[in-house]
Design a protein around this nucleic acid. Structure first.
Lengths: 139, 139
DNA sequence: TCATAAAAAGACCTTTTTATCTTTTTTTAT
DNA sequence: ATAAAAAAAGATAAAAAGGTCTTTTTATGA
């Protein structure tokens, strides 16, 4: 459903939402340590998110990645969209090119309600709202 | 969630459940045409399913792949398990190595009910029951 | 017996994903 | 100025996924 890059991205963004701000930044290495993923590989993904302004960064000593207030108002869908695109997550579970409610695959009625609800959850709440609501959980 | 191989496998098996028996067989090429996927690539997957006795085959003219009565009593989970393994579909949506109800990731409560219901649907019914129940749908 | 049809097997290839390593650029504090 | 810290960028590579092509084996029917 999601690539590792995208999973790491979502987890990083939630981590930053809960722990960072424009005064408190985290290096790729630190984030990688916190969420236990390969640091250099994560760095690539964080750079993409930065370039697309999903997260923020600053170079040099005491630099790092962080979520600005504006970043925190973005949506987790945007994170996934930026790294993986939305086709993968929205595509038919069995790979039918034209699967929809009027031309469903045999598992469409099982999958669609989940997907719709999932997409709603991660697109109706801001990154900050979502992260704080789920702050008790593991990342 | 599923690889293409596994998606093709599920669709092929449903096709065979609805259209084949020990008197009526389909070549890999025919099946590929019906479900519109690459024939040679599908053949590989069908051969694995055959070797693991999830489906049946016979060589030579008028040979092909089919579902025996016994095959039809198998489960779709077995198809996925044989091609992809179950780790992929059961693994944490965000990639946490130890995500479960007592140590959930932030989307566990969104994903787990879907996955449990999905697994129940494709493991409690036989391949034949499932296919016939959903025989109106596209594959 | 022989041509034919089909699975089975194996070699090969391309793309995508997942990484690692190195170098460059920028910024900060000393 | 300079050393250090960090992002950014680029090169390389291994593994997995996705797919094609060729040869071999097996069975059938004429």
């Amino acid at each position: 459903m999601l690539t590792n890059s995208s999973k790491y991205a979502v987890r990083s963004v939630i981590f930053l939402a809960l722990n960072s701000n424009d005064k408190k930044k985290y290096s790729a290495k630190d984030i990688a340590k916190h969420i236990d993923v390969p640091a250099q590989f994560l760095a690539k993904t964080l750079q993409i998110l930065t370039k697309k302004k999903v997260i923020s960064s600053s170079k040099g000593p005491h630099g790092g990645f962080y979520l600005s207030k504006k970043n925190g108002e973005g949506r987790l869908t945007t994170v996934i969209e930026t790294i993986d695109g939305l086709e993968k997550i929205n595509g038919c579970f069995l790979g039918l090119p034209a699967c929809n409610v009027s031309n469903p695959c045999p598992v469409h009625h099982l999958v669609a309600p989940f997907r719709d609800n999932f997409m709603k959850e991660i697109s109706s709440k801001t990154i900050l709202e979502f992260s704080q609501k789920n702050s008790g959980y593991s990342i």
